[in-house]
Amino acid sequence: MATAVGDRLTTVWTGLDRRHHLALAALVVGVLAVVPLVTNNEFLMNTLVLIFLFGTMGHGWNILGGYAGQVSLGHAVMFAAGAYTTAILFVYYGITPIVGIPVGGVVAAVVGLALGAATFRLRYHYFAMATLAAALIVRVIFFRWEWVGGATGIEYPFAELGTLASLTFRGNLPYYYLIGGFALLTTLFVYVMDRSKLGTYLKAINMDQAAAESAGIDAFRYKSYAMGLSSLITGVCGGLYAQYVLYIDPASTLRLLRNIDIIMVAIVGGIGTVLGPLIGAGVFITVREYTRTSLSGTQTGLGYVIFGVVLLFISMYRPGGILNRYGGRWDD
């Protein structure tokens, strides 16, 4: 059933021209923009904020993993780079997150480019394993690094809550528009990138790197562009996450599952597609939040069992995700 819906969505979307895409997008954005005016349900608002945040992170991962085909299992590093930069600049040095979040994005991009420079020679699961190892190294270091708060992490000062300079708010509403706005911006960017020279080159590298290179595409350079953009977006999401939860520690930002959450969103929705990460985030976060609040204690793990099963079926029967770029065949 889900497959049929996915195929239908793909057909409808690709059958429309650019004007209709924008009209449809404007409609969805319009509806989402007025949602907070209609309801102030805490659970719904929180779920939507998280969908925006994870959808955007999914976009970030998707540029590198979906378009360029480089499966990073270490994107939590860039997420943490953004989150820690934002929090450290604000809590330690009093620099407003309005500056801190973009700086965090840049720091994440630099970290990502360094990681890419070291690992892009590796292909497929070797790249995946190297990025995973990098994530685990960073995790161990952050747990012991006193300056960044060690295992305790960094907490936003309560007294500053709600001031403009702290970019923190009481209630979900401002976060809804702030994070939703960044999600919209990123989606528009990926939409443009999808049809640009960069997008085409990345897809070519993904399909067959050797062929792409013999056609004159500098694979390393374009993979680095993808890594830079991917890390920038992920880093900004890290900063926004810090603002939203007001507290960061290695356990939440660098846990193994953080790497997987980011990927899950992109895969479930459809890797290498513009709308995949948003649809994936919609499905993933809704189920995750629902299982988390309705189940308790160790039962919360059940959400991940469910997603394991979903991921398994996707990889076995529909590796392209709900929006299937592969058209149901193995032709990677």
């Binding site: 993993g65 497929y124 699961h125 793990g301 069992v305 394991g308 590796p319 990677d332």
Partner: peptide, 19 residues
């Protein structure tokens, strides 16, 4: 299958068994 699907299949097993 594409390498991606292989990575995700065993990663799915990680989630299922562990949780």
């Amino acid at each position: 299958a594409p390498m991606l699907a292989q990575i995700f299949a065993t990663f799915a097993l990680v989630l299922i068994i562990r949780y």
